[in-house]
Design a binder for these strands. Sequence first.
DNA 1: CGCAAATGCGCAAACGTTTTCCATGCCGGA
DNA 2: TCCGGCATGGAAAACGTTTGCGCATTTGCG
Lengths: 340, 340
Amino acid sequence: MSGRSRNTTRARVTLSDVAELAGVSVGTASRALSGNGRMRPETRRRVKDAAQSLDFRPNQQAQSLHTGRSWTVGLITTDGIGRFSIPVLLGAEDALGAGRISVLLCDTRGDLIRERHHLQNLMDRRVDGIIVTGRRTDPRPPLPGVHDGVPVVYALSPSTDPLDISIVSDDEQGCGLAVEHLLSSGRARIAHVTGPAHHAAAADRARFTERLLNDASLGFATGRAHFGDWSEAWGRRAAETVLRAAPDTDAFFCGNDQIARGVTDTLRERGVRVPDQVAVVGYDNWDAMTLASRPPLTTVDVDLTEIGRIAALRLLEAIDEKSSPGLHRVPCRLIVRDSA
Amino acid sequence: MSGRSRNTTRARVTLSDVAELAGVSVGTASRALSGNGRMRPETRRRVKDAAQSLDFRPNQQAQSLHTGRSWTVGLITTDGIGRFSIPVLLGAEDALGAGRISVLLCDTRGDLIRERHHLQNLMDRRVDGIIVTGRRTDPRPPLPGVHDGVPVVYALSPSTDPLDISIVSDDEQGCGLAVEHLLSSGRARIAHVTGPAHHAAAADRARFTERLLNDASLGFATGRAHFGDWSEAWGRRAAETVLRAAPDTDAFFCGNDQIARGVTDTLRERGVRVPDQVAVVGYDNWDAMTLASRPPLTTVDVDLTEIGRIAALRLLEAIDEKSSPGLHRVPCRLIVRDSA
DNA sequence: CGCAAATGCGCAAACGTTTTCCATGCCGGA
DNA sequence: TCCGGCATGGAAAACGTTTGCGCATTTGCG
């Protein structure tokens, strides 16, 4: 056996090795490989063959140093990396990875010190752009101290500055899908159970839903939205409350899937048939909840991956100076299962 | 208002700007800031002051080009970025970010082509090391074509090559915790419900559990482990089966929390009191399942964050040539809640 | 066949650092 | 007074690319 360890390739090959083998200068070799400059086809061939036979790969650091582009973007997630930021991240990585751009991951865990530190690091590395994302849909203050020419896109949590580029979910349209679906299947006594009132996701959805019901000359079955937390336990409790306050309720529209599942459990245990007697619609389309629920939940899918993808595309535009500032809303989709 | 957009700082400052302001040469400025070389304290001060007043930050790309270290590691996740790889990733990012090392994220989505592509990209960027992680605990073939001197650590899914550095969860010890807990609380008719037999996580845990029961002169309550999938629905069905086959079963040890929750639901609906009559123990400590379950689940916590952290530390060692090859097992913890 | 234009390719600067080597200038000691 | 040695800091090479410039050499056209 050779002394070289397994799974390895030979030491690093530089452009000058290629040039030497091809019998040309480094400059020519560079132009031959990049396609720039005019030269005899035969020369180009010779260089390309040399590069191939040596398995040459250009040193990105050297390239970046010279061109000023690092082909890297920073992805800052503020609220830990969780169920919401992952799909966004995936969508972004997908759109960026299609080109030669890589993603530097930074988790700030909601800590401003850490955020500044990571930001500084990203600037030092000369990233071409930055995507900021977070768990909550509440607006967040813009990143402080970003250098000129480094564009930033906010995904999921928009920036408070309307001139920044932000990509968010279209909650209003999402609520529209749910309400529409319930109304068109003949429901008219709709209750709304959701998360904490101080979360934008809860407050906004409640507001939109109320307006939509009003537009149909209806209101909440219980006269108000029920704010609590995002848990199944709250869903279970709230369902009891609603059934007591408005026994003729024929539908629950819930602020997320966990609440919806809790509601469904209470209904089933009380012998209320879903969806025959009461319909239930969730929000988020979280498989682990919607599929395990009995019956599986009809829900509003916030297309997080698409949000990430669009954020990445917008960032690429901005990097190419084709900026398009402002807020962009990504539509939701209704996933119809058995609960409504 | 100035023409400069908000939230920005002045154009990039280089070391030569600093040197000029301090009235020294670039070389001297470099030494002054890095602490290398001897020089008059006053000169060093002058340079440092200049650097500070200009808000100088060295260009990482230039540094890396010269020193050969990129202060970057690649994190390849093979199975999409999911519930299991996230905490690993977080732990790694945590341990690495403490230094000046950043993480380049690569998601291969189980595609070998994509894996090669990402790997190539990481090599081109001259990463200092690579962490490979995946959703499954099944061993995976080592990364092909890694250059000499670029260490690789496998987290969660070990490499099939025992000479590679792999960090995995200690399933045997984890099962020990669960079985121990059940036995010491007087259970003796223990059933085991778990995922697909062709998943290492399922097969291993079943094997370990059986051995542990045998050590206590016991066996599975139903005489065998029950393999299915990782879902609640399977847990619900399996519970029925077990209760029919061995009505005197007094405990369920489940391969994950979803199955455990399903089991618990069936038990409750059949009027079996948990944990009074039958105890239930899950695996993974997935909050969304364990806390929403009624009662909340006692479970084995696979310390994924710790796995990520240790993987990062091992990688750092390997980068500094203090390699420690082989498999390393991270112990689990038992989280006792109300179900057992 | 001669001249201008086009083509092909090498040279060297540049990107922003780090580091090696070397030239000062100053000290003390002989 | 002269010299060795040390402290200080400058010049320049190096890392591996890209690219502007200019010199040959070929080509085109009259």
